[in-house]
Every structure is written in C-alpha cells, then in structure tokens.
Amino acid sequence: MPGSRWFHAALFAMPGLLLAAAGAAHPGVLDAATARWWTVLHVVLLPVFPLPAAAQWLLLASSPPWLRWPGRVAAFGFAAFYGGLDAVAGIAAGTVTDVQHGVTPVVGSLFEVGDLLGHLGAGCFLAASVLIVLAAIARAGRRAWPGAVFLLVASVSFLDSHIFWPRGVLTMVGVAVGMSLLHHAGSAAPARRS
C-alpha cells in the first residue's frame, strides 16, 4: 500500500500531527518547575519543526514556477525563522530558567527575540500556504476546496496560536488535514491546461 494516494496523503498529515502531539505535551508556562521539560521538548522539536516546510515544498512540486518558487522561498523562511524561535524561546529560555531557578529579565529578552522570529516564521508559513492553495485550486478545481479551507484557516490561526494547547493543537490538526486533503486532491487530478 505504500504507493497509494491515501498512504501519501497520510504522510503529508504527519508533520502537523507530530506538532499537535508536541503541543499537547507543551507546558503552558515556563517556570522553574517546567524549565527542564521545556528545554528537552524543544530539543526534540528541532528536527520536527522543518517538516511542515518540507511538506509545503513537496505540495508545490507540480505548481507553475511563478507559484512554486515564491512558495518554496516562503516555506524555507518558515523553517529558518521558526527553527530560530525554537532555539531561542525554547532551548535557550528553558536552559536559562533552569539554571537561574526561575524566569528572569534575560528570559524576557529571549522571548522578545523568539517572538519576532516566530511571527516571521508563521507569516512565511501562511504565505506558502496561500500559494499552495492557489496552485491546488488551479490544478484540481473544486476538489481542492476542503483542503484549502482547512489549510488556510489553520495557517491564519498559527500566526498567534503556535502549537500551544488547546488552540495550537487544533491548528496543527487543521494543518495536517489540509495538507493531506490537498495532496489527495492534487494527486487525483490531471494537470489543467491554461
């Protein structure tokens, strides 16, 4: 079954589902009691956060170049900037809080930098998602609409929900469903001619 469209669609859902699971396990606040888990979780997430960008990159594969390349640049921007958020507001802030036995002004400064990186990354994710949706609708027509709605709503929610429980977890499930449905719709549709 590894060659089936549904199997591949399930693979496109995996990045969002992994991040939803991580969001469910993410501490609600960073303090001395949660600092170690906060740090460990963000170390584990380092290789996971780029996966949605990889899925976006692949969803753009059959798109016309004028959508494909800006979309791939935006997906790369998400991976780079959101990885920066993970390193700064995740690993560094958790480590500093653990070592200093509580949140200090240094942690506040790390969160300021991390928030900027996160907003840039989430904006890039939204931009790539918009281009994916345009390409999918051009290719698959109405079959792309369900996935388009899920992905766009989730991408807008991601701007401020990130992966935090509960909205961020639902956002990542929406990303998973949207990417999966868009891949399935695109793989079922013959390419449209202009």
Rank of each mutant, 00 (worst) to 15 (best):
W57D: 10
W57L: 08
W57Y: 12
W57H: 12
W57E: 09
L58T: 11
L59W: 03
L59F: 08
L59S: 05
L59M: 06
L60E: 09
L60T: 06
L60P: 01
L60F: 07
A61H: 15
A61D: 12
A61L: 14
S62V: 11
S62G: 15
P64V: 15
P64N: 09
P64Y: 08
P65W: 07
W66P: 04
L67V: 00
L67E: 02
L67I: 00
R68I: 05
R68M: 13
P70I: 01
G71I: 01
G71H: 01
R72N: 08
R72W: 07
R72F: 08
V73P: 04
A74S: 10
A74C: 07
A74M: 07
A74W: 04
A75C: 04
A75N: 05
F76K: 01
G77V: 11
G77L: 06
G77S: 10
F78P: 11
F78L: 04
F78H: 10
A79K: 08
A79F: 10
A80V: 14
A80Y: 15
A80H: 12
F81G: 13
F81M: 13
F81A: 15
F81R: 06
F81C: 13
G83I: 14
G83E: 05
L85K: 15
L85C: 09
D86F: 08
A87K: 00
A89V: 03
A89K: 03
G90E: 02
G90F: 01
I91V: 14
I91Q: 00
A92G: 03
A92V: 08
A93L: 02
G94C: 03
G94A: 02
G94H: 00
G94D: 04
G94R: 00
G94I: 03
T95C: 03
T95S: 12
T95F: 08
T95V: 06
T95M: 10
V96M: 03
V96N: 06
T97N: 09
T97G: 09
D98K: 10
D98S: 10
V99S: 06
V99I: 13
Q100A: 12
Q100K: 13
Q100T: 12
Q100E: 12
H101V: 12
V103Q: 03
V103N: 04
V103K: 04
V103D: 05
V103S: 03
V103R: 09
T104V: 02
P105T: 00
P105S: 00
P105D: 02
P105C: 01
V106Q: 05
V106M: 13
V106I: 14
V107S: 02
